[in-house]
Design a protein around this nucleic acid. Structure first.
Length: 242
DNA sequence: GCGACAG
DNA sequence: ATCTTGTCGC
């Protein structure tokens, strides 16, 4: 891998970090490649939104990933793909991408189409170093990505209103001790705990939240993530069996 | 040093 | 993430 403007997914995967120091260095090197200026696809667009998720069996050193493509308008499942591999990195808060991305990329490659948007189970900019799983995946693949997490991690927030669609800013400390907005706590269902949305790559926060709402017509968690979660668990148990 | 800490 | 039964409620 090099430091010039080009980025080779192959090289990044071939030189995947194996320790924390190398992983931190990789985040520092790739962080500047995140693109926030683009507004990204509108919710309800004529295309596919792909949800990705991963399930683990650390005992057997197995990881299963799923990529599920949904119709951007109807949310109907149009295609599914899975991949199984070896655990590439231990779980370290803040370094989740190094554990999940290699197998997720495999699953995405087995998809017979290019996603118009990828929805990740985790963070984009709402990360201690502003480079969570969604941002990392976006930079490596060049695809628009967003992160929708179930917990705020290191960020703080005020509870948004009870209504579906209500939101409040997600705040996280910056290097010089100040607070900055890194995402949004978004209520996807009335009276239900909010989800934590942040920009991954090539999309803005307003659209990231609009997509999240559109993808969550009935449950707290987006249909993309629900579908990918169910599929990767299925893939993991099949890998265990045979 | 201690606690907190996406999945 | 994962270990795990029943149970309350729409």
């Amino acid at each position: 891998m090099t430091n010039d403007a080009t980025l080779s997914l192959e090289d990044e995967l071939a030189h995947w970090p194996t320790d924390e120091a190398a992983a931190l260095a990789t985040q520092d090197r790739l962080r500047a490649r995140v693109r926030t200026a683009q507004s990204g696809p509108e919710p309800g667009f004529a295309g596919t939104v792909v949800g990705v998720d991963v399930a683990y069996d650390d005992e057997r050193d197995l990881v299963a990933a799923a990529a599920v493509a949904l119709d951007g308008v109807t949310l109907a499942v149009v295609e599914e793909a899975t991949a199984v591999g070896r655990v590439a990195f231990p779980y370290v808060p803040g370094l989740l991408a190094f554990r999940e991305i290699p197998t997720v990329v495999d699953a995405l490659r087995r998809l017979g189409r290019t996603p118009d948007l990828v929805v990740c189970d985790g963070y984009g900019l709402a990360h201690p170093r502003r480079f969570g799983l969604a941002s990392h995946l976006g930079v490596l693949t060049g695809l628009p990505t967003i992160g929708v997490a179930k917990n705020p991690f290191t960020s703080r927030y005020e509870l948004p209103g009870e209504e579906r669609g209500a939101s409040s800013p997600l705040l996280d400390g910056t290097a010089d001790g100040r607070d900055e907005v890194v995402g949004r706590a978004l209520r996807t269902q009335k009276g239900v705990k909010p989800v934590f949305v942040s920009v991954g790559h090539r999309i803005d926060l307003d659209r990231a939240c609009a997509h999240t709402l559109h993808l969550s017509p009935r449950y707290r968690i987006p249909e993309t993530t629900r579908a990918a979660d169910a599929l990767c668990r299925r893939a993991l148990s099949e890998a265990r069996a045979g």
